[in-house]
Amino acid sequence: MSTTPAAATARIRDQFGVEATAEAATLTVAVPRERWLALARFARRELGCLYFNWLSAVDWKEQGFEVLCRVENLEAGLVLMMRTRLGAAETHCASVTPVWKGADWMERECYDMFGVVFEGHPDLRRILLSEDWEGHPLRKDYAPDTPHAPYR
């Protein structure tokens, strides 16, 4: 299994029809939302990315959310940065928990902070904020001084 950045780029191009950008050993691949889970499976099975590093999101305001996931093949030293744009006002994204167990807490945090709903997540609930918190603080439209009920 060849996992040099160049070989991985070629295989991603064949499979997904997208061009990965390489910077040192880090490959960045952007796929449409529908191919997110397929890319995750491909990364694990074909590129040997067994190591799940982190998952998060960026709120691009009117352009909607972008979900990012960083996984690695430690033996080959390959780092894959997967990203997908959900589209304007879209909050649903496929969960990668079937591929890596480590995505569990990361997706919960992402749901907590951005309100991205990961479909297929076994236990999607808030993780850092309390269950009754209103809103998702890392959204750009959530002002830092949003009032909330005091704790009792």
Partner: peptide, 20 residues
């Protein structure tokens, strides 16, 4: 396997046989 899949690092992953 679990150490890698969960993204453990530091002494945890090195204690599980992964040289990272």
């Amino acid at each position: 396997e679990l150490a890698q899949e969960l993204g453990l690092s530091g002494p945890l992953i090195r204690g599980s046989g992964v040289d990272f």
